[in-house]
Design a binder for these strands. Sequence first.
DNA 1: ATTACTAGGAATCGAGTAC
DNA 2: TGTACTCGATTCCTAGTAA
Lengths: 220, 220
Amino acid sequence: MKPELLFALKKIAELGGIEDWIEITSKELGDQMDKSQQCASLYINELLELEMLLRLPGKKAKLKLTDKGKKELLQLYEDLGKILHGKTRIEITGYVTKGLGEGKFYIGKEQYSEQIFENFGFKPFPGTLNLKLEKESLSSFLMLREKPGILLRGFVERDRTYGNVKCFKATVQELMCIVVIPERSHHTDIMEVVSKHNLRSLLDLKDGDRVIVRVEIDGR
Amino acid sequence: MKPELLFALKKIAELGGIEDWIEITSKELGDQMDKSQQCASLYINELLELEMLLRLPGKKAKLKLTDKGKKELLQLYEDLGKILHGKTRIEITGYVTKGLGEGKFYIGKEQYSEQIFENFGFKPFPGTLNLKLEKESLSSFLMLREKPGILLRGFVERDRTYGNVKCFKATVQELMCIVVIPERSHHTDIMEVVSKHNLRSLLDLKDGDRVIVRVEIDGR
DNA sequence: ATTACTAGGAATCGAGTAC
DNA sequence: TGTACTCGATTCCTAGTAA
C-alpha cells in the first residue's frame, strides 16, 4: 500500500469516517491534505478499489472506512506501539453483562480446561465474565480476533464437534485472567474472560460495571 | 514531512534504531523497503537533513534516531490512538524508588496543593511516589513532557522563585492520582506521582516494585 | 565492499475542462 | 455546485557509474 494512500485513509478516519458516514468533497479532502482536488479524488478512488473505503453516491459523497481500512490503520498503530514500547498491550473496555456467552460452555469441558492448565498453569473457574464492549474498544477487539493467540485445540465428542478456542493472557485490575475467543464465533461485541477465580464475586462486579481489560499481545 | 520519509524512519526504528546505533547499509534499507539502494541513500540523507537521524561515519554506517525523529513517530502513534480509540491513555511503567524528587518539595507548598484542590478536587498527601521508569517507557514520558497538561502556576516567596508545575490525571491500579512534572525539570527517568492517599503504604509498595501508571491525555 | 552523483524514465500531481 | 478525465509539469525512482 502506498504511503500517500495510507495518509489519505488516516485523514478520512480523522474526520470521522471510522464510525459514521462523513460528507466530504474531494476538494475538502484535498485541502486537508495540501493536495489538489483531482489528487484527492484519485486517492478516494484508489481506496475504493482497495476496498478500504465505502462511498454512498450523492451530491456530496458520503465516505466511511471498511473493516479492511480500519485494520490497515490498526496495523500501523500496533506496529508503532511495538517499535516505540517494545511490546503491545492493548486496553479493552466493556460493561459487565449476563451470560449468553459460548465461553462458559467451552470452559466447562474438561478437554479445554485441561489445556488451559497446561498453557497458563491454573484450572479456570467454570464460568466466564461477559463484557459488552464499549464502542471505542470494538476496533481493538477486532484486531485481537486476528491475532494468533494461544490455541486450545478442539475435539470431537459423540458426533459433536468442538472447535478451536483462542486465548490471550490479560489482566483485570491487576488480576491475571484470560480472554477467550471461540475460533468460529460470530462478529460480536461481547468479550469473555476467564480466571482462576470467580471474577464477578471476587471483584464484586455487578451488571453494568465498567471494566478495563489489559490484553497482552506477543511481540510479533 | 513526506510520507515516504516517515516510513523510512519507521523502518529504521523497527530495525532497532530507536535505542541503539544500528549498522545498516543503504542497500539493506532499500531492500527492506522495496526500494533501490540509491533511493534509500536519499532517504537517509534527507532524514539527516531534517535532524531526525544521526549517522556515525564508517564502512557500514551506523544510524540512530534523534529525539526529534522519535517524536515524529510518537506523534503518528498518538494521532492513530486518538483516531482509533477516541482518546489517548498511555501506560508508563516504572519501579518504586526512594525520593530525590523535587515533587515532594513542591507538593508540600500550600500554594501548589491549593491549586491541585481547585483542579482535581482533593488535597494531595504531602509526599510523592517516585518511579524509576522502564527503558520502554522513556519515550512515552518524553512525549508527556511535551503535552500541555494542567498547569499549576508558580509564584515567588521571599526572593525564591517557584516555577510552574504540569500535572496529568492518571491512575495507579485503578486509583486516581496525578503525575507531576516541574516545568523546568531536567531530562530524567524519574516520574513523580501524587495522590490523595499515601500510595506507598496504601498499595503496600516496596522499593523495586513494578508499577504501571495510566496517564490520561486530552483529546488534542 | 559502500555511498552518492548524474541522467533518463516512471509515477505523481495539478490546471483546465467535460460531464 | 460536484467528480473525474486529459495532458503537460514536476517530482520521484532507478540504472549506471564515479569516488
